Amino acid sequence: EEEKYTVIYPYTARDQDEMNLERGAVVEVIQKNLEGWWKIRYQGKEGWAPASYLKKNSG
């Protein structure tokens, strides 16, 4: 089951394993960790993003 989330704040990656996020983008969360960083898939790429910048899509 894919978990789709919408980006609610833009984010600029500060590290090579982080993802740039555009507000309104829909991403797939593939791994959650306890530090508040989630691994996401977006446009065929995978990387880490701050969970607080993502909002779960309803339905």
Rank of each mutant, 00 (worst) to 15 (best):
13 A>Y: 03
4 K>V: 10
25 A>V: 08
2 E>I: 08
25 A>N: 08
12 T>W: 14
51 A>G: 14
9 Y>E: 15
22 E>L: 04
48 W>L: 13
1 E>F: 09
25 A>E: 15
16 Q>V: 12
23 R>E: 13
58 S>V: 07
56 K>V: 10
27 V>A: 01
5 Y>S: 02
19 M>F: 06
11 Y>I: 15
54 L>C: 02
26 V>F: 04
54 L>T: 00
44 G>R: 02
33 N>L: 06
34 L>Y: 12
33 N>W: 04
17 D>R: 10
20 N>D: 12
51 A>Q: 09
59 G>N: 12
26 V>R: 05
10 P>S: 12
34 L>T: 14
33 N>Y: 07
57 N>T: 10
4 K>F: 15
34 L>P: 15
34 L>E: 13
56 K>I: 08
43 Q>I: 03
31 Q>Y: 10
43 Q>C: 12
10 P>M: 07
57 N>H: 11
45 K>S: 09
23 R>C: 07
26 V>L: 08
58 S>L: 11
54 L>Y: 00
34 L>I: 13
18 E>C: 05
14 R>L: 04
36 G>H: 12
54 L>A: 00
25 A>I: 06
12 T>N: 12
52 S>D: 14
47 G>R: 03
9 Y>H: 15
51 A>F: 04
41 R>W: 06
36 G>V: 09
35 E>P: 14
27 V>M: 01
57 N>G: 12
15 D>P: 05
32 K>G: 05
26 V>Q: 08
38 W>V: 03
46 E>I: 06
5 Y>Q: 01
18 E>Y: 09
6 T>K: 13
26 V>I: 08
7 V>L: 08
49 A>I: 13
12 T>I: 06
49 A>G: 05
6 T>F: 09
11 Y>S: 03
15 D>G: 14
26 V>P: 03
6 T>D: 08
1 E>H: 02
44 G>T: 06
18 E>M: 05
36 G>Q: 15
6 T>P: 00
48 W>P: 02
29 V>L: 08
53 Y>V: 14
29 V>I: 07
59 G>K: 15
16 Q>R: 14
18 E>A: 06
53 Y>H: 12
55 K>V: 10
20 N>C: 07
53 Y>E: 02
42 Y>L: 09
50 P>C: 04
41 R>G: 04
31 Q>A: 13
3 E>I: 13
29 V>R: 01
59 G>A: 15
2 E>S: 13
29 V>S: 01
15 D>L: 08
4 K>I: 15
34 L>C: 14
28 E>T: 11
1 E>C: 05
55 K>F: 03
52 S>A: 10
51 A>S: 10
43 Q>L: 07
11 Y>C: 14
53 Y>C: 15
48 W>M: 15
34 L>K: 11
20 N>T: 11
32 K>N: 05
41 R>C: 06
47 G>K: 07
13 A>D: 05
37 W>R: 13
49 A>M: 13
7 V>E: 00
45 K>V: 14
32 K>V: 03
32 K>D: 09
1 E>P: 01
